[in-house]
């Protein structure tokens, strides 16, 4: 029991993700700035922003559904934190694991997006509602490629458990190279999930102010931003576990730094990609996802099905 509480509140749960989220945001912002030939924020900036937002006045719109409006940030945060319990962070085994947990993690990671939709919709502001509808429309574009390209590695490993997959790829070093195509697709889909350029359509600043988050302020906004940070970390961890599963058979204390490096590597790619492009329009984004991403993810599945028959197990 005490162990479970420790897992949920301290490591790898709330406290760890809280701190790691700040560091991830810092790395993301700093790299983003350096790519643009700027200096970027100091290391404590994400934390300072958080403290500032917490201490600011919070305004709930009169027309908003107060309960949903206030609960949404907590929903989003909770879902992301729960997801990390199934992802191998310390050693090659997750805190909780069962056959099929990869599906649970993917669905848990969908909850924040729905939470943003609810928050935006029940803010009852035009900008929020348009942002909310956009984020829901976008989910249909990136979710299928993301799920499909997670399916590929799982098929090759013949298990539906993340810990099982990590164990399999560690027994068969080099097999992860088969999944590189899926990795690329997953990275691009992750940009959609995290609502970052070129897929930051739901919160396009110059079009609909801040999308679903327009009416949020004070500590609710602080929690929402933290939920976004945690989502970034958890998303990157998931990709690291599925597509970069090396080194997990070492001593847990040695695996942990490796895991951190893998997560930062994925965050670096994310911030590189978001400096690279202009924001797409919603219709262009859906076109792109269905025309290119989904077929590519499907190709990965087919490749892995064939490889499963050829490669020694």
């Amino acid at each position: 029991m005490a162990n479970a509480i420790f897992n949920i509140l301290v490591f790898p749960g709330f406290l760890f993700l809280f701190v790691f989220g700040f560091i991830a945001e810092y790395v993301d912002r700093k790299l983003y700035a350096r790519f643009q030939n700027r200096v970027g924020p100091p290391w404590f900036q994400p934390f300072a922003d958080f403290v500032k937002l917490i201490s600011k006045q919070k305004i709930v719109p009169d027309e908003a559904d107060v309960a949903v409006f206030k609960l949404v940030p907590i929903f989003a945060l909770t879902a992301s934190i729960t997801a990390v319990l199934y992802i191998p962070v310390w050693g090659n085994k997750a805190i909780y694991s069962f056959n099929g947990d990869i599906i649970v993690v993917l669905y848990l990671l969908t909850i924040p997006t729905f939470a943003y939709f609810l928050g935006g919709w029940y803010s009852r502001s035009v900008y929020s509602m348009i942002g909310a509808v956009r984020s829901l429309t976008q989910i249909f574009a990136y979710e299928v490629p993301l799920f499909l390209c997670m399916l590929g590695p799982a098929l090759l490993a013949d298990t539906w458990s993340l810990s099982g997959m990590v164990a399999f790829y560690n027994q068969h070093p080099g097999y992860w190279l088969c999944n590189l195509l899926g990795f690329a697709v997953a990275l691009i889909s992750l940009l959609g999930k995290l609502e970052k350029v070129p897929f930051d359509i739901p919160e396009a600043e110059t079009e609909i102010v801040a999308g679903a988050f327009t009416e949020y302020s004070g500590r609710y906004l602080a929690l929402l931003r933290m939920a976004l940070n945690v989502e970034l970390v958890v998303g990157a961890s998931l990709l690291a576990a599925v597509f970069l599963p090396f080194g997990f058979n070492l001593n847990p204390a040695a695996v942990f730094p490796l895991y951190i490096i893998q997560v930062f590597f994925i965050i670096a790619i994310v911030s590189f990609l978001r400096t690279l492009f202009a924001r797409l329009r919603l219709d262009q984004m859906i076109n792109f996802c269905w025309k290119y991403l989904a077929p590519l993810a499907f190709v990965q599945v087919v490749i892995n099905l064939i490889l499963k028959g050829i490669l020694p197990r």
Binding site: Q36, A204, T206, A278, R279
Partner: peptide, 9 residues
Amino acid sequence: IGFDTLLMY
């Protein structure tokens, strides 16, 4: 159009 890199450059 969300291409902040161009703005900075």
